Computed example of a mutant assay.
Amino acid sequence: MEFLQKLDVEALIEFASTTGLQFLINLVAAAAIFIIGRWVAKAVHRVVVKGMQRADVEPLLVKFLGNILYALLLTFVILAAISRIGIQTASLIAVIGAAGLAVGLALQGSLANFAAGVMVIIFRPYRIGDYVEAGGVSGTVEDVQIISTELSTPDNRKIIVPNGQMMSGAVVNYSAHATRRVDLTVGVGYDDDIDTVRRVLESVVADDPRVLSEPAPNIRMNAMGDSSITWIVRPWVQASDYWDVYWEMTEEIKRRFDREGISIPFPQRDVHLYHHAKDEPQANA
């Protein structure tokens, strides 16, 4: 009996020492895989990021793709290290997948914004510094994130708009081109001389040094309304000069019209009264 007990203890000690030694070896190997693998992942990440930067890729896209690549490489390294210890990675991947599905269902809106953010980064309908109108709001783009876009309004308000809302409809980018056309509409009276009006408008446009010669400004009589004749004045300017030219040219047109005696009529209607003899009261007999 004592012999059997002694044999069992010795067998247990031998099994524990053998198994423990093997587990320790596997643990050291897993740690080595993780350390070396993480170093390789960082090195690959740096090389890819520098390559995209040399290719003049959008900085936000470089950051996003670099982070995704590093996360995928690090995940692969962690699974390899866990597998070396002896843990079955198939069941672990299944659990992670199920958890990811549950989280995805709970965060449908955020994932939609994430997908829209990827579209913004890839197709770049707007960039930082552009003045845009999208998602029911307008302002200057201050920052573009994966989930949202930050806008600054002309009155210095900050608007944070989910990317899903930004990409749900038309995006109007006022800063996409270097030049813009200023559209002015001017009404003059029917009694004013057409040639004089044209000369004054052409003079105002020609005297402004910010107006571009190409494309040429367009000055035309546009419509004959109920109480005035409408002219259009459409000069081209640098996008940065748009509002200054719009406001200052409107003011200058009014000053020139006043000097030349050109009227800007108020809306009016002519009312004609007709008198019928049968409506007069009959004289007393």
Score class of each variant (00 low, 15 high):
M167H: 07
A283Y: 14
A29D: 00
V271Q: 07
T185I: 14
R157T: 09
I87C: 01
S152E: 03
L105F: 15
R157H: 07
G129I: 12
M119A: 02
L273V: 15
I264V: 03
S240P: 02
V237G: 01
A98Y: 04
V171A: 04
D183Y: 09
V49R: 02
I122E: 04
M1R: 09
L79K: 03
V200S: 06
Q88F: 11
A178E: 13
R157M: 01
S175G: 12
S175F: 03
L111D: 00
F34W: 06
G139A: 01
T140W: 11
G129S: 00
H177R: 15
M52V: 12
G37E: 02
A32S: 06
V57Q: 07
L61S: 02
G135H: 11
Q165D: 13
S227C: 05
M119L: 10
I194Q: 01
I264L: 10
V204R: 08
E142M: 13
Q53K: 14
G169S: 13
A112K: 13
I96H: 02
I33D: 08
Q145D: 05
A112N: 06
S168M: 09
S168G: 11
Q53A: 03
A55F: 12
P235L: 07
S168K: 11
P281N: 13
Q165I: 15
K254Y: 05
F23K: 06
S175A: 12
G109S: 14
A41K: 00
